[in-house]
């Protein structure tokens, strides 16, 4: 990996963390896309030899610390989807936009499911299927995010 690439990649994660804690009216919180999950999916499928499970685990741990979630919950869920991305990245590249959106929905849905398990483990009541809303908004945002990142980072020769 080229040295300047590290800074760009770190910058995308800083922006993702800022968006993850940006103030939002309480009723809208369920619709906040899982930005860090999108970034993990993007970078792992783009550079599977560089980024893997350990990287996603670390990103998740930082997200836990910044958002105040149970320590380890995002680390676990992001490591899980990074593992799935490593299995799927060849298919992901061959997929059409619509198929990618569906796959991202499933991946972020799995990540949210793990978070909900951790919540229930901590004794908080389950609230039905609302936890799939972030997966839906993330999937709808995926073509925009991946398109923009792909275009700019190809220009900037991040590899």
């Amino acid at each position: 990996m080229e040295p300047h690439s590290r800074w760009f990649i770190a910058a995308t994660f800083l922006a993702g963390l800022l968006l993850a804690v940006a103030p939002l009216a309480h009723n809208w919180q369920w619709f906040r896309p899982a930005f860090i999950s999108l970034l993990v999916i993007f970078w792992v499928t783009r550079m599977p030899t560089v980024f893997g499970v350990g990287f996603a685990w670390l990103a998740g741990l930082i997200q836990d610390l910044v958002t105040g979630a149970a320590i380890g919950s995002h680390a676990l869920s992001l490591a899980a989807i990074a593992y799935l991305c490593l299995l799927f990245y060849r298919r992901m590249r061959a997929y059409s936009a619509g198929q990618q959106v569906l796959l991202v929905f499933v991946l972020v849905g799995i990540q949210q499911l793990v978070s909900v398990w951790v919540h229930e483990f901590a004794g908080k009541p389950a609230q039905g299927l609302v936890f799939l809303w972030p997966a839906a908004t993330s999937a709808l945002l995926w073509p925009v995010v991946s398109g923009l990142l792909h275009r700019y980072f190809t220009q900037l020769q991040v590899r």
Partner: peptide, 25 residues
């Protein structure tokens, strides 16, 4: 890594050991 994450979650849930980490966070 998965086991480590689960261990962290369990430790955070049942003990107070992670309190300084949480304060730092």
């Amino acid at each position: 890594l998965g086991a480590l994450a689960i261990a962290l979650i369990v430790v955070g849930r049942y003990t107070n050991w992670l309190a300084p980490v949480r304060d730092f966070a």
